[in-house]
Computed example of a mutant assay.
Amino acid sequence: MTGSTAELVVPEAIRDEILERARDGRPEEICGILGGEYDPAPDGRSRVRSQYPAENVAETPRTRYRIAPEEQLELFERLEGRGEEIVGFYHSHPRGPPRPSETDAKRATWPDRSYLIVSLEPRAVSAWRWRAGSECDATASRFERERIVRPDRRR
C-alpha cells in the first residue's frame, strides 16, 4: 500500500451518514456504493455526491463484506439514472484499522475506483484507490492511499 496524489471529495454530511451507519451496524461490517463524478487519472479528483447503502450478505459479516450482485446492479442503475458515475465503494472495520485488509486487496475488482474504509476502533475514515496490475503482473495490484478533502477545498 503506497501513497498517491489522488483525492476523494466527500461532503461531511455523507461521511457522517456512513459513520452513523457503521456504528448502528456494529459488530458487523456495513457496505455500500459511492456515486458522483469519477476521475480515473493517477492524480485525479473524484467527487462523491451520494452514498447508496447495501446489505452485507457475506457469510461472515463481522469480518467481511459482500454486496449481492443483484443489489449491486440495482444500485448501479439507480445512480446512473441520477446522472452519477460509480466513484467507488465503502465498508466498515468495526474493530480494525482504517486501511484495506488482505481480504480487501484480494477481492478488489474495480481498478482506479475509491474504497472508503470506516474504522470504529479507532474512529477514523480513510480512502484508498485500487490500482490493478497488468495481466502479465497481477502482483503489481495494490491499494494507494487517497486524500479525503471537503467539497469547499480548492486544489
Score class of each variant (00 low, 15 high):
T2H: 10
P97E: 15
R142D: 08
I33Q: 02
E37L: 15
G88K: 06
G133D: 04
G83L: 08
S119T: 11
L116F: 12
R62M: 14
P122R: 03
A105T: 12
Y38A: 06
R113F: 00
E17V: 14
P61I: 13
Y90K: 05
R62K: 14
R23I: 12
K106T: 09
L120S: 04
R147P: 01
G32C: 07
I33A: 04
I86M: 13
W128D: 01
F76C: 06
E17P: 10
P40D: 09
R45I: 10
E29P: 08
V87C: 05
A140P: 01
R142L: 09
F76D: 06
M1P: 12
R66M: 09
S134C: 02
R153W: 10
R150E: 15
V48S: 03
P94M: 11
T139H: 11
I30Y: 01
A140L: 08
L34G: 06
L75W: 04
D112I: 00
R82Y: 06
W110Y: 14
F89Y: 15
R150T: 14
E74L: 07
R129Y: 01
E71V: 02
A138W: 11
K106G: 02
K106R: 14
R62H: 10
H91Q: 10
E29T: 10
E20H: 07
I33K: 02
A124V: 04
V57R: 08
E70S: 12
R66H: 05
D39K: 04
A54L: 11
A68T: 00
S46I: 05
K106C: 04
P98R: 14
G88V: 09
D137H: 12
S4M: 00
I33L: 14
G83K: 06
L75K: 12
A68C: 00
R155C: 00
W130M: 05
L34E: 05
R123I: 08
A108P: 08
T109A: 11
G3A: 14
